[in-house]
C-alpha cells in the first residue's frame, strides 16, 4: 500500500467527512490485513476506522447487531444464546489474523476463501451502510457483486445484523481445507428451520469453489416442506448441484470441487438438522 498520510478520526461523522472529501485518494482501514493480497500502488490517505466505536456485538429483539469493526476473535469468543458465528470464526485462518481482521473488512471485498460472506448468506444477514442516509441491504443483494461497488466515497459499512438462532433451527458450517489454516477449497453453510418434523425453511450457501458466494436455490426449493433425512438431503443436493459453475482452486479439478460440494452439502444439512432437532 502506498499510504502517503494517515488520519485517525474518533467520530463516525468525522471519518465519513474525511473520506468523502478525499474521495478516491482515501481508503478506510480496519484490520488492514487486505494489503497482503492487494497491492495498491496509487497514493492514498489511510483513514483508520478502528477508533470510531463501531465494534461490539449486541442482541436486540432477537437480532444480533455486529459492529463493522468487531474482530473475528470477538466473534469467536462471544457466547450467547443463538450465536453461531463462533463456528465460522474458528475456521478463519490464524489467531493473529483473527485478532486483526474485522467483520467489515471481511465482507466488503470477497475472496474465494472468505468465510463470513458464505455464513451471512445462509443466515439471512442484513448489512447496514451509513452514507448520507442509512441503507440496509440483504445478504443476497449485497453479495450479488463485489460489495465495495455498493459503497460511494464516504460510505461505511457500520454493522451487520443476523437473527439469533431459536429453537427448531440449526446452523452448520464446513470449510474444506488441507490444514487448519488453509484457504478454503469449498465452503458450505446451511441454516434450517423445522416445523412439525418438516423443513419449514432452509438456506444453503456455498463459497470458494464458485466465482462468488451464492445460495443454492434449487437445493433449498427441493427441501422446503420435505421430511429431513439422508435420502431427502441427497435428493435435494442432486437436484441443485449443477446450478453453479464449480471451480477448482489450488490445484484441484473443477470436477473434484463439485464432488466436494456434493458431499459437504449433505454433511452440513445433516448437522444443521441435528441441531434443529435439539440433538
Amino acid at each position: 500500500m502506498n499510504y502517503v498520510d494517515f488520519k485517525s478520526p474518533t467520530q463516525l461523522d468525522e471519518a465519513r467527512t474525511l473520506l468523502k472529501e478525499l474521495g478516491e485518494s482515501a481508503s478506510p482501514v480496519a484490520g488492514s490485513t487486505l494489503h497482503v493480497f492487494l497491492k495498491d500502488e496509487s497514493p492514498k490517505v489511510a483513514v483508520d476506522i478502528l477508533r470510531l466505536g463501531l465494534n461490539g456485538i449486541r442482541l436486540v429483539d432477537g437480532v444480533y447487531h455486529i459492529g463493522a469493526t468487531t474482530t473475528v476473535t470477538d466473534m469467536l469468543n462471544h457466547r450467547q444464546h443463538g450465536w453461531v458465528l463462533d463456528r465460522v470464526a474458528e475456521a478463519f485462518v490464524t489467531q493473529p489474523i483473527r485478532n486483526m481482521a474485522t467483520m467489515g473488512g471481511s465482507v466488503v471485498r470477497v475472496f474465494p476463501w472468505s468465510d463470513l460472506p458464505v455464513a451471512l448468506l445462509a443466515l439471512n444477514a442484513e448489512l447496514v451502510i451509513t452514507g448520507d442516509a442509512e441503507r440496509v441491504m440483504s445478504a443476497p443483494e449485497f453479495f450479488a457483486t463485489q460489495p465495495f461497488h455498493h459503497l460511494q466515497a464516504g460510505d461505511l459499512l457500520t454493522s451487520v445484523r443476523i437473527p439469533a438462532l431459536v429453537e427448531g433451527q440449526g446452523f452448520a458450517y464446513h470449510k474444506e481445507r488441507r490444514t487448519t489454516t488453509d484457504f478454503s477449497r469449498c465452503t458450505i453453510a446451511a441454516w434450517l428451520a423445522l416445523d412439525d418434523g418438516k423443513i419449514a425453511d432452509v438456506r444453503i450457501a456455498v463459497g470458494a469453489a464458485v466465482p462468488m458466494p451464492r445460495r443454492m436455490d434449487a437445493v433449498e426449493d427441493a427441501l422446503k416442506g420435505a421430511r429431513p433425512g439422508p435420502a431427502a438431503f441427497e435428493k435435494a443436493m442432486q437436484a441443485g448441484i449443477d446450478a453453479p459453475r464449480w471451480k477448482g482452486l489450488h490445484g484441484i479439478s473443477d470436477e473434484y470441487a463439485r464432488h466436494l460440494a456434493s458431499v459437504h452439502i449433505v454433511d452440513v444439512l445433516t448437522k444443521a438438522h441435528e441441531e434443529a432437532k435439539g440433538a
Binding site: M1, V29, H35, A46, N99
Partner: peptide, 25 residues
Amino acid sequence: TGMCGSCAVIVDGRAINACILFAFQ
C-alpha cells in the same frame, strides 16, 4: 504476508502479525 507468525507482537493484549499492521495503527 501474515502466514508464519514469527513477527507476532502483542497489541492491546492480543497477538498480531507486525508484518501486517501498519505502524500508524
